[in-house]
Amino acid sequence: MIERYYLAWVWATRRLRHYMTKYSVHLISHLGPLRYLFDMPALVGRLMRWLVLLIEFDIHYVTQKSIRGSIVADHLASLPVFDGRAIDDDLPDEDVAVVTSLLGWCMYFDGAANHSGYGIGVLLISLHGDHIPRFVRLAFSDGHPVTNNIVEYDVCILGLETTLELGIRQMEVFGDSNMTQNQFADALATLASMIDIPAEATVHPLLIESRSIPAYCCLIDEAEFDNGLPWYHDIYQFPRLGAYPEATTAKDKRTLRQLATRFVICGETLYRRSVDGMFLWCLDHTSAD
């Protein structure tokens, strides 16, 4: 029974860790099990590991004066789940009779907290798939403490303010952090929580591109688009023929000579000598594809 007490205690700290690490906690309980834990000269096994897990919290022990506070805990303990099902602590939607999907704007919001601070992120998605991100760093003064609930309220209000500014009157709102589609808003909130932007600085809207090929392939395409020659043509011609490109300046020739020292020709193939001594094959556009 003592181990069951402490297992429930440790489980509660894992679930409420984001609250308990910031505030002092008053534990109202029978002092018998607590006295047993701290009076033991040498703890071993699970009790010792659980005690180590509880050291990080500022817990004050208070004698239990009323049994009303333990009614819920006693009820849960009397109805255990034995089939391995995950515990779902969300309230059931008993009052929801009909769920209707609105074809229009969608709003995803999420908050983030870490050692650097607090951030909130909102993502609006139009009917045509346009993404409008907005994120804010919460830097409240000491007179306004930040809790998880306040973060969630602020991010939801931020999203509603944004929709009003855009003239949106109908939309679906999603705030569940476990949703796959909410990863964008979570990333925005994490970014806002980890960076400290000066008040006078201006951050322009984010531009996120999508590339289907590596960057070196894009560079090859740009270099070979004009004249059809491979990007390494000038480097190849200098050690083989000692020739410089036409209309080059003395500075360009010096740069080409320095650059050519990093390359070597074996047969008809040009290689670049890497820092670890390996030879890297220089590819043109066709070979890269």
Rank of each mutant, 00 (worst) to 15 (best):
G159T: 11
C218Q: 12
I157W: 01
P198K: 11
A260T: 15
T162S: 13
I2W: 11
I55T: 10
V62K: 07
A201W: 12
D88P: 03
D289A: 11
G129Y: 13
T162A: 14
T147S: 07
G129L: 10
L138R: 03
L166P: 08
R14M: 08
K65V: 01
T147Q: 02
S274W: 05
Q237C: 14
G84C: 04
R254T: 13
R272L: 04
P205M: 01
M20L: 14
A192L: 09
I208Q: 12
I55S: 02
I150M: 05
A243T: 15
F135W: 10
R211D: 03
F174N: 12
K253P: 02
Y244E: 02
L79R: 15
D90W: 01
Y36E: 04
P33N: 04
A201S: 15
G228W: 10
R273K: 15
P33D: 06
I87P: 00
A12G: 09
G32E: 06
S101P: 00
L160Q: 07
I197C: 06
P245G: 08
E161Y: 03
S210K: 12
R273L: 15
G69P: 03
V10G: 01
Q237R: 13
N114T: 13
R211F: 14
H30P: 04
R257V: 14
N148D: 02
D142W: 11
T13G: 00
F38D: 04
T269N: 05
E165V: 14
W50S: 07
G121E: 02
E222L: 09
Q183M: 06
F140L: 13
F263R: 08
T202N: 08
A215Q: 08
H60F: 12
P205H: 10
D93H: 03
G175D: 05
T100F: 00
N149Y: 09
L283S: 13
G32I: 01
G143N: 13
L188H: 07
Y6Q: 02
G267I: 06
V72R: 05
L207A: 08
D186A: 06
T248S: 11
R257E: 13
R272W: 02
V173C: 12
S78H: 13
R49Q: 09
R85H: 15
E152Q: 11
G159P: 06
L164Q: 14
N148E: 01
E165R: 15
F225R: 15
L127P: 04
V96S: 01
Y36N: 10
S78N: 14
L127C: 08
R240P: 00
R35N: 15
L256G: 06
P92H: 02
D176E: 13
Y216G: 00
D276M: 07
S70T: 15
S116A: 15
S177A: 08
I168K: 02
G84L: 07
S210Q: 13
H285C: 03
R254H: 14
V275P: 00
P214K: 04
D58I: 01
S193K: 05
I213A: 01
S29E: 01
F57I: 10
G143K: 14
L160W: 00
S212F: 06
E165I: 12
G143E: 09
R4A: 10
A215G: 00
H26T: 08
D95W: 10
H144F: 03
V155F: 00
A185N: 02
T248K: 00
L229S: 10
Y6W: 15
P80W: 12
L166K: 14
R262A: 09
D110C: 01
L207G: 03
C282V: 06
P230G: 03
S193N: 08
A288R: 06
P205G: 02
E209A: 01
V44A: 12
